[in-house]
Design a protein around this nucleic acid. Sequence first.
DNA 1: ATGGGCCTTGAAGTGGGGTTCAAGTCAAGG
DNA 2: CCTTGACTTGAACCCCACTTCAAGGCCCAT
Lengths: 157, 157
Amino acid sequence: MLELPELTIGEVARRAGVATSSIRYYERVGLLPEPERSHGQRRYHTDVLGKLGFIGVAQSAGFKLSEIKELIDGVDSSEGMGEQIRSLSTRKLDEVEALLERTRAMKGWLEVAKECGCATPAECALFAAPGEEPPEADAALRLVQVQGSDCRRPPPG
Amino acid sequence: MLELPELTIGEVARRAGVATSSIRYYERVGLLPEPERSHGQRRYHTDVLGKLGFIGVAQSAGFKLSEIKELIDGVDSSEGMGEQIRSLSTRKLDEVEALLERTRAMKGWLEVAKECGCATPAECALFAAPGEEPPEADAALRLVQVQGSDCRRPPPG
DNA sequence: ATGGGCCTTGAAGTGGGGTTCAAGTCAAGG
DNA sequence: CCTTGACTTGAACCCCACTTCAAGGCCCAT
């Protein structure tokens, strides 16, 4: 049932869509086990593709490589991915929710900015520091004041 | 109308919620202008708080410092934040939308993971490489197979 | 046997965003 | 006068995830 390892690092790289240098790097940091070798060259079983896929997913899920390593180590050992992955995911979920919020906010900001016709930061709500009301007050050293105040002013043209 | 600059770097740091080292760093990379000095020490006008606030907002909007610098330079110069900020924002909006998508996907993944009762990666949809159907096929070197296949299996306990 | 192509290694470099450190200056307070 | 505390500097260091490089090895086809 054990197939011989048949993939070179280059093939794995092509099929998984990652660089060979990344694969070696993952091995160095313990994310991937040392594969068997043929004539000194790494030879992989196809199952490494799944692992690389998972690393990709987890990475795009916001896990650092060190966290992914925790996950993998947890899964590979005794307990079988139980508490490990659940607790790590629960922790991470909070971070991701915060990121989601920030991302939404930043999308809103950019959408306004895209249509912003303000001439100076001073008159523009986009540039108000948090806790600071848009213009007025300490307008002392802000850039030249122009009238108007809202970012809904359409861009010229 | 010009108030004297009155804030030390430490006060600015406290009020803006950033480290003094960051403020100096921002100055080094041209995000903040060189402030006036009193006895060799930096003295800031309160307007720097607005700028730092903006840097924070822009950063959390996904702009790199170098992009924020572009924005600030554009705003501070001739044209007055017009085309500059609109085009940069338009470009950035695409990136942010992609990030939003990834973030949503990763939230979904984590929510499933949090409730995952699978015992091995092999049986679990979370660990399927993209383009690979969940378990079956090349199960050769995957970890010990257990039956069951779906991540909706509740955690033990 | 020569060239091509793929592989090997360790070390160093990159980019982004800072932080830390040692050594020194300065003004105010006791 | 001496200490205390906040500031100054440049350089070095940190983390993260890689990439790049030089120098070399191995197999295969021509």
